[in-house]
Computed example of a mutant assay.
Amino acid sequence: MRRLLLLFFALFAIICAASCRKSDNATLSKPSPDSLKKPVVITRPPVTLVGRWDVSAEKFVKYRDGAEISNTTSAAAPYNLAYVIFNNDSTYTCLAMDWYPALSTYGVVKDEVAGTYRLADSSLSVSSYLAGLNTIYYGGPPNSPPTLTPVSDKMVLRQFTDSTLTVHHEYVFNATDPSAGPVGNYKYIWDLYYRKHGY
C-alpha cells in the first residue's frame, strides 16, 4: 500500500509540474501591456468622384454689369432629371431630360454632354460643362446671337462626401453684338447639388 501511495504522489507531482509549465508558457504568450496601449488605426477608403451622381437641385443666378437679372432655384422631380457619370479614366458624361408621364416610356433629352475632367484639391475642371436641370442659354439682348468673350471660368467643390457633392461654377464673359457693339459684362453663378446614385 505504501508503494501505491508513493506512486500516486509521484504521479500527482508530475501532473502538477507539467501544468505549471503550461501556465508559464501561457503567460509568456500574452501580449505586453505596452502593446495593448497602441491604438488600432483603421484607414477609411478615400472618397471618390467616380460613379453616377444625380442632380437633386440647382441654383442659377445671372448678373449683367454687376446687377442681378435672374435668380432661379429648381429641384429634381420624376419628370425633370439630370445626372453626371465620372469614370475612372477621367472622362465624364452628363444627361438632362424631361420625362412626360403621359408618354409612358418616352422622355425628351434636353442636354447631353461628354468630355474629360480633372480633380485637384477642391477644384474641378471639365473640358465642356456639366448639364443640369435647366438648359442654360445666353438670354440677353440682342435677338441675334452675340459674340461671347470669356473672362473667367471657375469650378470648385463646395461639399464632397460619400453621398453628396456640390459644384459651384462661376462663368464671366463679355457679350458683343456683331452689329451694335458691346452688350455688357455677364456673370453666371451656377450651384449644382448632387446625390450619389443609390444613396
Rank of each mutant, 00 (worst) to 15 (best):
V50I: 15
G51P: 09
G51D: 08
R52D: 07
S56D: 08
A57R: 13
K59V: 10
K59Q: 14
F60V: 09
K62H: 09
Y63Q: 02
D65S: 09
D65E: 06
G66L: 02
S70K: 01
N71S: 15
N71F: 06
T73L: 05
S74R: 13
S74F: 01
A77P: 02
A77E: 13
A77T: 15
Y79H: 09
Y79K: 07
L81H: 03
Y83G: 00
Y83H: 14
Y83E: 02
V84I: 15
I85H: 02
F86S: 00
F86R: 01
Y92L: 06
T93I: 10
L95P: 01
M97Q: 13
W99I: 13
W99Y: 15
P101G: 06
A102K: 13
L103N: 11
S104N: 12
T105I: 09
T105Y: 11
Y106S: 13
Y106A: 11
G107F: 12
V109C: 02
K110T: 10
D111T: 14
A114F: 10
R118C: 03
L119Q: 05
L119N: 04
A120H: 06
S122E: 05
S123K: 14
L124R: 03
S125R: 12
S127F: 06
S127H: 05
L130Q: 02
A131G: 10
L133I: 08
N134W: 00
T135M: 07
T135D: 07
I136C: 01
G139S: 05
G139I: 07
P142C: 11
N143R: 09
N143V: 07
N143F: 11
S144W: 00
S144K: 05
P145T: 08
P150I: 05
P150M: 06
V151C: 02
D153L: 02
M155E: 10
M155K: 08
